[in-house]
Design a protein around this nucleic acid. Sequence first.
DNA 1: AAGTGGTCTAGACCACGTC
DNA 2: ACGTGGTCTAGACCACTTT
Lengths: 230, 230
Amino acid sequence: MRQTQSHQSVQAALLKRIHSGEWSPGMFIPGEVELALEFGCSRTTVNRALRQLAENGIVERKRKRGTRVTPMPVARATLEIPIIRKEVEDRGSEYRHSVVLKEIKKAPASVTARMQLKDKKLLHIQTLHLSDGAPYMFEDRWVNVEETPGIENAPFDEISPNEWLVQEVPYSDGDISFYASSANKELADFLEIKEGAPLFIIERTTRMNDVAITSLKMAYTEGFKMTSKL
Amino acid sequence: MRQTQSHQSVQAALLKRIHSGEWSPGMFIPGEVELALEFGCSRTTVNRALRQLAENGIVERKRKRGTRVTPMPVARATLEIPIIRKEVEDRGSEYRHSVVLKEIKKAPASVTARMQLKDKKLLHIQTLHLSDGAPYMFEDRWVNVEETPGIENAPFDEISPNEWLVQEVPYSDGDISFYASSANKELADFLEIKEGAPLFIIERTTRMNDVAITSLKMAYTEGFKMTSKL
DNA sequence: AAGTGGTCTAGACCACGTC
DNA sequence: ACGTGGTCTAGACCACTTT
């Protein structure tokens, strides 16, 4: 019996049994104490290995019932949504942006619904992001000014609203969604594509303690691809 | 000084300092021992709190240098990609599917490149998935038959290839990507939409120990939206 | 060489959910 | 009531990286 098993070795050993079919989906596996004995390590170590597997959706754990291999595994992909500038520069292209509209006004219903801020005047900013001089993404953003001190004087010709907000305004949570849509006339003009061309849309709202900070819609030109590991 | 602080309380306290600006992006924060003293708990507990923050990209840690608040926070969203049937049924719709093509042949270059299986004959399956009788998603899949024993006799009129594979064939890793595209004639016919309509595409390849198992392209009709928390 | 995070251990108590 | 996971502790040693 080996000593000083790392939680990673234990996790690997457990994974092997699952992948080999020794433990099949829906099956209950031995308890922590038993596994600790078998692997010759402390229960703490087994616990950590199992906890990580549970976080990855490989197993399900419940007190008193025990641990079982997830019956219907749900694939999970962790997407990293970088700052636009980094996204462009990491591909070796030159990044530029241009603020095409900046106004303070009441937001339309679709936006107030998402942000749950009725009848407030919000800062509305539209930004075109360019990669090597070519239109890359169009950003339509609404900002809750009360929660973002200093935004009035932010130098948006030097730093994009995207980047400024990420650096200056912390958020606690939010939601994000992805879908496909076709370009209307306005977007087509900005992005220099044909009307009706397919766009990849990301909508995102961020909040700080349940108060909406900003909500935005990003329209990516065709050719954009978001990739991740499973 | 309180005793028995849970790692969650500690994590919440640390987050509060970061969100309040007391610790700003790029700033190094006290070491584990110091924090343990301050919070009146063991270093193990502080370690776990900080480890989780690091996993979420809130802080960066390096031995000897210490821990600092991530200078340029990268938003992370964990997407859950469910089985199509569940996806449809969870919305309260009735699910059906229909296999429209099943053949064994050499895959085109684009597929062999993704799967890194040259000159092998692969199983090619096309499935149309329906929600309440209306076309919902078209799936174009290639399967490495050698790695999926039993697939020849799988009852694909009862269970979709998607679901069969998830249940029967484990995978260790894979990659996934998302983009927008417009419907060609064939897809438009299957999905009963106009040619050129925007589609949400998911491409996915899964592997077991670096051997490709299956690679597929899923085309969702307009209206599909993928949502997640930040 | 030294400081910081990374991990392991043995034992303990607690909390939840099933029986 | 009881069994299982969830967590905490105190101390120890290790590994990496910078000085």
